[in-house]
């Protein structure tokens, strides 16, 4: 059986909120190491990979591997029944047909319990190959969100060019064009505001603005985001969590 307790429901609420537009039905794979979710969107353009490790839970127990088939629209409805500060417990038996979601307020004088019906989802497990990325850019997640938001009204695509000197985001559309360049910087007092670039060779990728902006729904989960780029490979957009990560992969646009 699975029993996982999170001290704040907000983490799980935010994670589900961040992925529910890309993925509707998916399996939450529960093992002794934690909860994992991996799913592609219906158009097979992007992939979500979530890991909540067992040490991120205040209590965690999973005796046998379980795949919990969940409709994220339904799960969202149930998660909205709890407050962000509530203690959240997820519970499912070995052959359970539902996931029990419990909320307890911090005063411990209000307990609520909901059961979400589980689905049988036949989901492919994909192997993500180890990739040698040409560039890794770590930057404030709010900055990345701002660039995607600003460029959304100009173009359907954003080109990311990374060189040693900096990273340049460019868009070109019917009304005109735009670019934002960020140079590496560091601040010892506020490391969350730093931009860091690790580069082995210059790289350029053109990506869908709509999908990048969708990934930015995870902004509230982490102050920093890491973009990893390799020529003609999917970009990896990673939001580190205190115990685990939320990763998005997006196939690049290719010139014909």
């Amino acid at each position: 059986m699975l029993e996982g307790k999170l001290e704040q429901a907000s983490l799980f609420k935010k994670v589900v909120e961040a992925v529910r537009e890309l993925v509707q039905d998916c399996n939450f794979d529960c093992t002794e190491n934690g909860l994992a979710l991996q799913a592609m969107d219906t158009s097979h353009v992007s992939l979500v990979s979530l890991l909540l490790t067992a040490d991120g839970f205040s209590e965690y127990r999973c005796d046998r591997n379980l795949a919990l088939g969940i409709n994220l629209v339904s799960l969202t409805k149930i998660l909205r029944c709890g407050n962000n500060e509530d203690i959240l417990t997820l519970e499912a038996g070995d052959s359970a047909d539902s996931l029990v979601v419990r909320f307890e307020n911090t005063q411990q004088d209000r307990m609520s319990e909901y059961a979400l019906k589980l689905m049988d989802i036949d989901q492919e497990h994909l192997g993500i190959p180890e990739t040698e990325y040409a560039a890794s850019i770590t930057m404030p997640s709010t900055e990345f969100q701002r660039i995607c938001r600003d460029m959304q009204s100009i173009s359907e695509s954003i080109t990311i060019d990374c060189t040693k000197g900096g990273v340049k985001f460019t868009c070109e559309g019917d009304i005109g064009s735009g670019s934002v360049t960020l140079k590496p910087n560091s601040s010892a007092d506020k490391p969350e505001l730093c931009t860091k670039i690790d580069l082995s060779e210059p790289v350029s990728l053109t990506l869908s603005t709509k999908y990048l902006l969708n990934f930015c729904k995870a902004t509230g989960l982490s102050q920093q985001v890491t973009l990893k780029l390799a020529d003609e490979n999917p970009i990896l957009v990673e939001y580190p969590l205190s115990a685990g990560h939320l990763r998005f992969y997006l196939a690049p646009k290719l010139d014909e």
């Binding site: 097979h44 992939l47 290719l254």
Partner: peptide, 14 residues
């Protein structure tokens, strides 16, 4: 014009 690629070629079904 750039064509949107898909992930299928990059990730293998286990």
């Amino acid at each position: 014009t750039a064509q949107q690629g898909r992930l299928d070629g990059f990730f293998k079904v286990l």
